[in-house]
Design a protein around this nucleic acid. Structure first.
Lengths: 329, 329
DNA sequence: TTGTACGCGTTATCAC
DNA sequence: GTGATAACGCGTACAA
């Protein structure tokens, strides 16, 4: 049997095609009686609009794109769920495109692939280099990234500075006084902000900022040999820039014979899947990945739908308390 | 400036629209000379086909759907990457749709949402209940699931039985003789298959199958109080049905004062992100999630493109050796 | 408030 | 091997 089209609905309802279209798109200028008749016909026929025809006619796919890289980062799924859910809530769809690694592949993507993708906007998660080119290509974009501001583009970040402050406050509430801070990628905005939050908490508590308790490295990965350089300063707590560093910190402390949390409390950042199974289970700051995805969608679609101006969003973190900082206060 | 269409290309190349279309779609019946002229015009104009118009004309979106649930499972990203990559390789696209939890939401999905999605086929990852309804709705489907066969539907699984056998062989090669097996969800196919593989390895090595070394539960989560019931049988190795159970097993052994791997070796299944950070780091069987995603795409598109018959695939696991089974043999 | 006429860009059909 | 023409199903001026 042939597909049921808007023409069939119009015939059954005894109206014209455009009237059916008006009803479908909630235009105001349709009488209640006509609208009812049309709705009945739609229901009776089981009519479902053709997204194909609609796309051609409107010039829109009703689809938002999301790029995904090979080296799957554990938080990706959560961000994607937030995006997908918000997108569907607004009657749009989510297209996921795998991005091949390498600079050349990225250039190829912008030049040859992106223009052919059935999408009306793109959400970029921690973009590496090609942001400017994409944006220049005319594709509307929203960025989720906490490694630096994106002037002129809508972007979402989480409250790194406040999250870090909360973490250090937690340590202070547990009676710690000599609190160390370890991070890698010190050049990135998020690492700087977490350091600022660390200083904020110390200052508010009237604790001195001791440089010998701070290790900020450019590296992505920190090893026990790095972290152990902090031990002579006798910290009674260590705030790690993210959970992987907290893991290396725990190993360092165990190897040095320090008990966690009795001798040294440890707190991480990100609440990654590994936090729960560390020894001891790691207290950590959780980033609101789903909400960040949602916020990005809202910014993108608001600008697409009714030309909303470029906006930014900063969503708050929360603290997940386990046992690496000792018994609750 | 207006969009460049097939008409522009035809005009510049001095041919008709259908001829350009034939070139674009690699139809054989175009002379080499004409093809060259058309390609030149395409290049010169920077023409990019409209996916919108193409969809309407062909009746296809060129898009495959993937359902995603809220309770993000850690392996989802990998499967999705495999799917996305294979889909793009074949010139299709991937649409990700969030599935709301609850039976009612699932019914609503099949009845009202699915027919309106811009997709031509659907990949189901560990579907819960609605598989039959979806399949009955006429939407082509491929299933990735290792919890049981799906007669009449294309599905992908991994070699659970062989994977388990490899794990137990690994323990045997490390000199272990009293090897225990712990699993939950014993009713599911994958748990049964892993048990079979465990028995296979014992049999091949001439080791007795001691029932007091086997714990098969219906539960999803196992606790130290469950697992410790195995200890009186004095196992020198424990094969856990999956990594979460291995984690509970490690905790149980530590609490009982058994050293791992000296007294008892432990091996897991899945190579989940937590395996690496356990104490000691867990040796585990890795499932080829990306390849499973790829296989599902191939089955789905082959049947969509040239009506390939319903097929199944079983992709092999691999062993990731860490230190929970002692030094290498 | 409703209907007529047309365009969106492509592919398929059928001549030539 | 190539070209004219007709769909595909919907939205939208514009007219009534």
């Amino acid at each position: 049997m042939a597909r049921i089209t808007i023409t069939d609905v119009a015939r059954v309802a005894g109206v014209s095609k455009p009237t059916v279209s008006r009803v479908l798109n909630n235009h105001a200028d349709v009488s209640a009686e006509t609208r009812r008749r049309v709705m009945e016909a739609i229901e009776a026929l089981g009519y479902i609009p053709s997204s194909k025809a609609r796309s051609l006619s409107t010039g829109r796919h009703g689809t938002v794109g999301l790029l995904m890289r090979l080296n799957g980062w554990w938080g990706f799924t959560d961000v994607q769920y937030g995006i997908a859910d918000e997108v569907e809530r607004r009657g749009w769809h989510l297209l996921v495109h795998p991005l091949q690694p390498g600079a050349e592949a990225e250039r190829d993507f912008v030049a040859r692939i992106l223009p052919g993708l059935p999408i009306d906007g793109l959400i970029l998660l921690m973009p590496e280099g090609m942001l400017a080119e994409i944006s220049a290509s005319g594709m509307p974009v929203a960025v989720i990234d906490d490694r630096g501001q994106r002037p002129g583009l809508p972007y979402v970040e989480s409250t790194n500075r406040e999250g870090a402050r909360t973490a250090v406050q937690h340590l202070i509430e547990h009676g710690r006084k000599r609190i160390a801070f370890v991070t890698g990628q010190q050049g990135d905005a998020f690492a700087k902000q977490r350091y600022e939050g660390y200083l904020d908490a110390l200052r508010e508590a009237g604790l001195p900022a001791d440089p010998s308790l701070v290790l900020r490295s450019d590296a992505f990965e920190l090893h026990p040999s790095d972290i152990s350089t902090l031990l002579p300063a006798e910290p009674d707590a260590i705030f790690a820039g993210w959970d992987e560093i907290a893991y290396a910190t725990l190993n360092t402390l165990h190897a040095a014979g320090r008990k966690v949390p009795d001798d040294v409390a440890v707190i991480g950042y990100d609440d990654s899947p590994i936090a729960r199974v560390m020894f001891p289970p790691l207290t950590s700051v959780r980033q609101p990945f789903r909400r960040m995805g949602r916020a990005a969608v809202r910014m993108l679609l608001d600008s697409l739908d009714h030309g909303a101006p470029v906006a930014n969003a900063s969503v708050p973190t929360s603290l997940v308390v386990r046992s690496s900082c000792g018994p609750h206060a």
